[in-house]
Design a protein around this nucleic acid. Structure first.
Lengths: 144, 144
DNA sequence: TTATCTGCAAAGAATTTGCGGGAGG
DNA sequence: CCTCCCGCAAATTCTTTGCAGATAA
């Protein structure tokens, strides 16, 4: 049963990394490639189900861990209790998040100075920066 | 049964904020005041048990939520699945964390430029910064 | 007194895992 | 084939909560 999952960006990454391309992985890869937000596992699973209702949530969990270990996605933590995932783009496309505390809306941003600064801070402490978490939580400034 | 919990900094904060000062809260307050690390609820509970073995872990959870809502402690997330807590000092004592990925050691740091920058970023996006998460993960630079 | 708090144990929510059958290379 | 993968359901881990008795103010 062909479904148009063969050409997704994430699927290509899997092939590049030598992962066994099973049907569930193809579908999950496509869903990730098509997602422009930061879905949690439950959201991913329901999107995946549309394409293939036989895929279990356990497989989504296992696949996300695999993709994380293979640097295909990153895990995000927006303060609610669950993990969210986002496809890794290139270094150029690196960004952070500001979460609107009123609406929960997530705004992505990139700041050159910030990138420089966090590397410098780690170096000054005697460390090479290997990862970081940064989320800002903000309340919209009243424009009235 | 007197125990030397009456004078802890956190206990004073509780009184200041008008919280009912029960025995469990006094003990938990003392443990927090004496903690210079970032304990999770299980660690807190075992420290609390030393002073009073009758205090349940449910009370520790409830009390930490209360202290969080009352701005006595802040919740931290270091990437392992559990919440960690730290007493709020003053604005001057605000800091962030760098986690050594080899040893798990947590290094606290403060950076003026960073403070300025994150407020500016939020403002530029049309938001007032109300909270933020920032943790750096680093690998020690080989000094050989 | 009286509203709040606590311990206990059960419930929840997110995530992981053992197992036997199934599928990719 | 042969290893790795999957669905299922049970198990784990962290955290919350209903209840009935206890306690601070």
């Amino acid at each position: 049963m062909p479904n148009n999952t063969s050409e997704s960006r994430v699927a290509k990454l899997c092939v590049d990394k030598g992962l066994k391309m099973t049907e569930p992985r193809k579908v999950i890869a496509k869903v990730l490639s098509d997602s422009k937000d930061h879905p949690d596992v439950e959201s991913l699973h329901s999107r995946v189900r549309v394409l293939d209702p036989t895929i279990s949530i356990a497989t989504v969990y296992r696949t996300m861990k695999l993709f994380e270990d293979t640097n295909i996605v990153t895990k995000r933590d927006f303060g609610d209790g669950r993990a969210r995932y986002e496809e890794i783009q290139g270094d150029e496309d690196h960004h952070h998040h500001l979460i609107d505390v009123r609406t929960g809306k997530v705004i992505e941003f990139y700041n050159e100075e910030l990138e420089r600064l966090k590397v410098k801070i780690a170096n000054d402490l005697g460390y090479e920066l290997v990862d970081h978490h940064l989320e800002l939580f903000g309340s919209p400034i009243n424009k009235n």
